[in-house]
């Protein structure tokens, strides 16, 4: 296992967006027990450092693979195989729509004493529904793109990248709504 090892390989999983959760959990447990620094605590410095490094990679790999958006971004990078994707591209009309939602969230932020809570809940539901649509779409796009490293056509990959960009915008919007709720507490 090298620092550059691909996480799917490390966890003995195929290059797929859809993932076998129980296989991921089992592999994480196996790798943790094999590499955790606690088992070499009294070993020489070099060995401890190596365990720290490997264990950190296992943790990072687990985190990446267990979160849908992170796993998608990671797999996308592998499939693109060094080819550049436009990391700011968005589907037509999306930014304008976000602009509208964003403005409304900002305005709600200035309303105090629990006013606007109802509208906030509506906005939240709207954003969550949109997020679900985007996530379902992503699984379909990955199937289209195939799983051959460096072979996949660029067009579906770019579509996945745009799809991930959309999720980022929506997450920020949801965080912002959450933040307003916390501020009101």
């Amino acid at each position: 296992m090298t620092a550059q090892a691909d996480y799917f390989e490390l966890f003995s999983l195929p290059w797929r967006y859809e993932i076998d959760r129980s296989a991921l959990e089992a592999a994480y447990e196996r790798l943790t027990l094999a590499h955790h620094p606690d088992f070499v605590a009294t070993a020489p410095e070099a060995e401890r450092q190596e365990a720290e490094r490997l264990s950190a990679a296992v943790n990072e790999g687990y985190r990446t693979l267990s979160r849908d958006a992170e796993r998608a971004a990671y797999l996308l990078g592998l499939l693109a195989g060094g080819r550049e994707l436009n990391t700011t591209a968005l589907p037509p009309g999306f930014l304008q729509k976000m602009f509208g939602l964003q403005e409304e969230v900002e305005e709600l932020g200035e309303v105090s004493d629990g006013g606007g809570d109802g509208r906030r809940a509506e906005l939240r539901a709207e954003a969550e529904a949109e997020l679900e649509t985007i996530q379902a779409e992503r699984a379909r796009l990955f199937t289209q793109a195939g799983t051959e490293p460096g072979q996949a056509a660029l067009e579906p990959l770019q579509a996945i990248q745009s799809n991930l960009n959309c999720e980022r915008y929506l997450r920020r919007l949801l965080d912002r709504l959450d933040g307003q709720r916390t501020d009101d507490d």
Partner: peptide
């Protein structure tokens, strides 16, 4: 400004 608001601090990750 709008873009910056939405972008995560580390785009693409």
């Amino acid at each position: 400004e709008l873009r910056r608001f939405f972008e995560e601090t580390r785009p693409g990750q």
